[in-house]
Every structure is written in C-alpha cells, then in structure tokens.
C-alpha cells in the first residue's frame, strides 16, 4: 500500500519532495539525490517533461525509484499523450510498482524546447483523474472491463494564490469529485494568504500539501513574481534574501523555508518541497522546520 496514502489517512503530517529527470540518460545522480531524501520523506514526485522540455521519462524514473525502495509519485501531464496512451501508461505504471499518480494539465509546448510540437490535451486534468479513477474501478474510460485493476492513490494540483481564486476552487472541487484524494500546491510564501485559501476549501475535506520552493536569491524571487503564475513572494522575504552575502544565501533560504513550514504546518496536512537543484539542502530545511 502507498505509504503516502497510509500516512495521510492516519492524519500524519506528510513530507514529499521531487526530482526532475535529466535531459539525457544520466539518471543515476538524480536517483542518488532521491536516495538521500528517502528517510525524510513519504514519497518523491517525478516531474513529467517539466516546462515542456523533453527529458528522460517520468514513468521510467518512477520505476527506478520504486526498485530502490523509494516511493514515487508519477506526475502525468495531458499535454503529450491522448486518452489511449495516458490510460496505457497508467496501467503500465501499476505494473512497474507505481501507486501514486499526480494528474496535471502540463505547461503549453510553446514554453519549452519543442515549441513546434502538436499540443495534445485530448483530456484535461479533471478528465484524466476521471479516467484513472475508472481504471481503479476496473473499467477504462469508455467502460470496458479490465483484466485486473490497479489501486492508484490519485492526486492533483491547485494554486492557492491564484487571483481570482474562485475558478481554481471550482476546478479543485471537480478534481475531488473526479477522484483526487490529495493535493500538492503551487509554491506558497504567504502563510496568511494560504490560511484563507485553506478555509475556503475546508468543505472539500481533502488533504493539501503546501508547495515549498527554496528561494535561491532575491532575483529568483522577483523573477517568479513577474513570470510564474500564482506565485507571490512577499517583499519582506525578498529583502531578507537581499540582506545576506552570496555565500550565506543557502543558509538564509533554509531559515526562511524552515520558518515558513512551521507557519504552514498547523494549516494543512503536509508539505511538498520542490528544491529545484538544491536537493542537498532539503534535510537542513526539514531540521529547521523541526520535522
């Protein structure tokens, strides 16, 4: 059984992290990164051609993690595969030891390194959840019986700082109805704003893991504020990053993330840490957060 599911069911505070597969075949260093986090987290997400940049696959990486005893969360975007391929990959994933699936739409291909590719989006994230939930029930999307059924723990994403928030919440509700049993969020930096979001979605009674992205510099924070949807780094955090020398940035980043997690902990059911290359600092962040 999925440890992630087990812990969330028992209302334990859950930690997940993620790795992004390489552009190429050198997967080993990424698996090592995951191994170093293994004892501190419940599961590790594997991104699916993130930012629409073609890479080593999420499914293969998940399988390699599972083989090493690391529980993966298979991220699946609907950008690159039609409903036949998506369902087939989900069945294959179960056969390869994957129990957790995170269903997403995926960035538009125009943002990545193959901008001329054909965007698929045969299904959207809600329909993908519906399809995966149907597989769990022993039927495919059109109702054909399966010869043996999986038992995926299905997740989805939400953007708590979206403006306006209501469309995000309506879609979140649809995702829950379609089969989502946990949520991981876009990066959160404002605990007050996040508390208001959690109040709004309390009626959905679904576990939410707040997204934590380690701040690397004031410049990165400003870049995200200007370019990344649903991310709002408050000015005081930007000033805090700015106040330290370059060598002290990791220390400051760890301190900020640790403090943020402490603030978020009473509000939600877990955190999802996206280190974006700073994997080695994750244990220190968890120490700083008292986890």
């Amino acid at each position: 059984m999925s440890v992630l599911k087990d812990r969330l069911t028992k209302s334990e505070f859950v930690i997940t992290s993620e790795i992004g597969p390489p552009k190429g075949i050198n997967i080993e260093p990424h698996l090592k990164e995951a191994e170093e986090l293994k004892d501190r987290v419940s599961a590790i997400n594997v991104t699916d051609n993130q930012s629409s940049v073609m890479r080593f696959g999420s499914l293969a990486t998940c399988h390699l993690l599972a083989k090493r005893g690391i529980e993966p969360v298979f991220q699946v975007v609907t950008r690159d595969r039609n409903r036949i391929a998506l369902q087939s990959d989900l069945l294959s994933a179960w056969g390869l030891g994957v129990e957790n699936v995170l269903c997403l739409t995926g960035d538009h291909p125009s943002l990545g390194d193959h901008p001329e590719s054909k965007p698929v989006y045969d299904l959207d994230s809600v329909q993908l959840l519906q399809a995966a939930d149907s597989l769990n029930q022993g039927k495919d999307l059109v109702g054909n019986e399966l010869d043996g059924k999986p038992d995926f723990f299905l997740g989805a994403v939400v953007t708590p700082a979206a403006d306006p928030l209501e469309p995000q919440i309506i879609k979140m509700e649809k995702k829950v109805k379609a089969g989502a049993r946990f949520f991981q969020t876009q990066a959160v930096y404002d605990a007050g704003q996040f508390a208001r979001f959690m109040k709004e979605v309390a009626y959905l009674k679904v576990p939410v893991l707040a997204g934590i992205v380690l701040l690397k510099s004031a410049g990165m924070a400003k870049f995200m504020n200007e370019n990344v949807a649903g991310v709002n780094v408050p000015q005081d955090l930007i000033d805090e990053m700015k106040s330290v020398s370059k060598e002290d940035r990791p220390k400051k980043s760890i301190e900020i993330a640790g403090r943020l997690i402490k603030e978020l902990k009473p509000l939600c059911q877990g955190v999802h840490i996206m280190p974006l290359g700073w994997d080695k600092y994750v244990p220190q962040v968890l120490d700083a957060a008292g986890l």
Binding site: R79, T105, T159, K171
Partner: peptide, 12 residues
C-alpha cells in the same frame, strides 16, 4: 490548451 473543465494554473 482547449481545456473543458476550467483554467490551468498558468494564467497570470
């Protein structure tokens, strides 16, 4: 993206 069930997380 031609999504049928609501916005993705990409709008700013």
């Amino acid at each position: 993206k031609g999504l049928l069930n609501g916005p993705c997380g990409g709008a700013k």
